[in-house]
Each structure stands twice: as structure tokens, then as C-alpha cells.
Design a protein around this nucleic acid. Structure first.
Lengths: 139, 139
DNA sequence: GTAACTGCAAAATATTTGCATCCTT
DNA sequence: AAGGATGCAAATATTTTGCAGTTAC
């Protein structure tokens, strides 16, 4: 019997392997939160080679299973894509919230990015909005 | 006689030195555009030590002369702060546009970030909005 | 069995730190 | 003159690449 995780991988034509399952599981467990590369190494229990994590993230990114989130600090963070995200093209039009207290990034699924009017000549393709502040857990 | 550049540095209680002037000049010349660390090394004519660039950017950031811009790719980019940005606290509430063709980042000073309504318990402090697409020069 | 994935080693990059020297005030 | 800034060397950290061994299908 296939689990949800297996299905996600198969849908993207990826082999179902231990590390992929573990990492995907972590993303699901984080539930909308964002993970940096370092988080993944820690939270999986340091079982994988760092290289495998890099490659797995890269693969997930290409297949559209996860997307990267822009942050003001250097860190690159990833979060699971919701339905509607096909490989490459994301309709990831919700707001990301970075907590300055706990450092966690949350996808605010309920908050859509509002429309903006761009100056003449600018052709938008993708919108990203990041709000920094104090999240509801650190309040 | 003091130039604009000298004034900016003095206002932030920084010594007026060659590298700082050069880097600041570059930011002014970029006119709202954003620079990645690599751009600065290139465009100044490779005159400085890489370390100096790192430290200068760090200093400018602390003094509030520049701010960092979040991007979806890993790169960290910086742009000049406008008046109203004191050290640490920026009122940098305009939209940033990243061109997928030429790679340049532009501050769209005329485009304000619209208000959004956050879920209960989230206390916003800073808003960042990044739009990716094709800029007016690459159109 | 074959193609794809992983882990190890090592290379290539990027960033930080220490310290002696030089420049700004 | 004194403190801060720079440049060099080197230590760290991060990310990428090659390849042989292993695993999924």
C-alpha cells in the first residue's frame, strides 16, 4: 500500500528511496513551515550525507515538490508546494512570514498576495511577499 | 568641500576612506538597483580585497546605509536605503523587481507594498515584496 | 539487469577571523 | 598619536563534482 509520501514521489516520477521519504516526511510534518538546509540535516537525525540532502532538495525543487522562499538573511529556505504547483511554475501566491523571535518561517496559506500595479514596461511573472515580525507562537 | 558621499559616511560616523567611497558611489550610480556581493567586486574594477567588500557591506548594513533584499535564488543583494531609514529600522516599503532576463534588481520606488491582513496573533514588523519578471529594458 | 540514487572523497566557492600595517581624524 | 580600516594569510563553512558501490523498479 502506498502512503501519501510514496504517492508524491511517484507522481513526480522519482524513485521511492529512504532519504527522499525521510526528507519529504519532514516537510509534511513541518506543515507549511519552511526548512533551511541545515534544519534538514539536524532534524532527520543526521543520517544522511550532506550531499544527498543537497541533491534531494535540488531534485524536489525541479520537480516542483518544494519551492524556495526568499529571506532577508542569507539563508535559503524551502517549503512544500501546495496543489497547483507543477514543476517549474509555481502558483505560490501566498505570503511568507518570518518570525524574528523563533526564526521559523511560516506559509500563511490564507493570506494572498495582493495585486500591484507595475510601471510601464515591467512584465511580472512571479510574486513573492515576505513579512518579518513576531509569529503567533512567540507572541 | 564635502561631497554627497562624504556626507553619507560622516552622518553614520564612519571614516571616509577610499573603498567606502568607491562602493557607496557604485550604489548611488546604480540608482535604486540592487547589487550582489559579486557585482561589487566586478564593477569597482577588482581593486579591493574581497574581505574589505564583505566588511564594508556589513558596516553599511549596520549603519542603515544599505539594506538587503530577499531573493528566491540564493544570492544576497543590497540596495541603498532612502531617507527615513535609520540604522536597523527601515521603512523600505516599496517593491523590488528582479529581471529574469538581465538579472538586475530594481527598486520600484513608485510601487508601494499594499496592506495585507494577517491571521490572529501575527505581529508584522517589516514587509518585503519581490516580483520576478522581465524589466522594461529587456522587454 | 539497468537506470537511478547514495555515500565518500575531493574540488571549487563563499565567508569569517587574526594580525600587522596603513590611513583618517 | 590613537583608533579604526585595510590587506594578506589562513581558518571555516558551504556547495558542487566525480566515481564506485548500492538500490529501486
Amino acid at each position: 500500500m502506498d502512503t501519501q509520501i510514496d504517492n508524491i514521489l511517484k507522481r513526480s516520477q522519482l524513485s521511492v528511496t529512504g532519504s527522499r521519504k525521510r526528507i519529504l516526511e519532514l516537510f509534511l510534518a513541518t506543515n507549511g513551515g519552511a526548512l533551511a538546509h541545515g534544519d534538514i540535516e539536524k532534524k532527520t537525525g543526521e543520517k544522511f550525507d550532506r550531499v544527498t540532502v543537497y541533491r534531494t532538495l535540488q531534485t524536489f525543487l525541479e520537480k516542483g515538490i518544494i519551492h524556495s522562499i526568499p529571506t532577508v538573511d542569507n539563508s535559503v529556505r524551502y517549503a512544500m508546494c501546495k496543489e497547483g504547483c507543477a514543476g517549474g511554475h509555481h502558483h505560490d501566491n501566498h505570503v511568507h512570514f518570518v518570525c524574528s523571535a523563533c526564526g521559523n518561517t511560516t506559509c500563511l496559506e490564507s493570506v494572498m498576495i495582493p495585486e500591484v500595479r507595475l510601471p510601464e514596461g515591467f512584465q511580472p511573472e512571479e510574486f513573492q511577499m515576505v513579512i518579518t515580525g513576531v509569529c503567533k507562537d512567540c507572541h
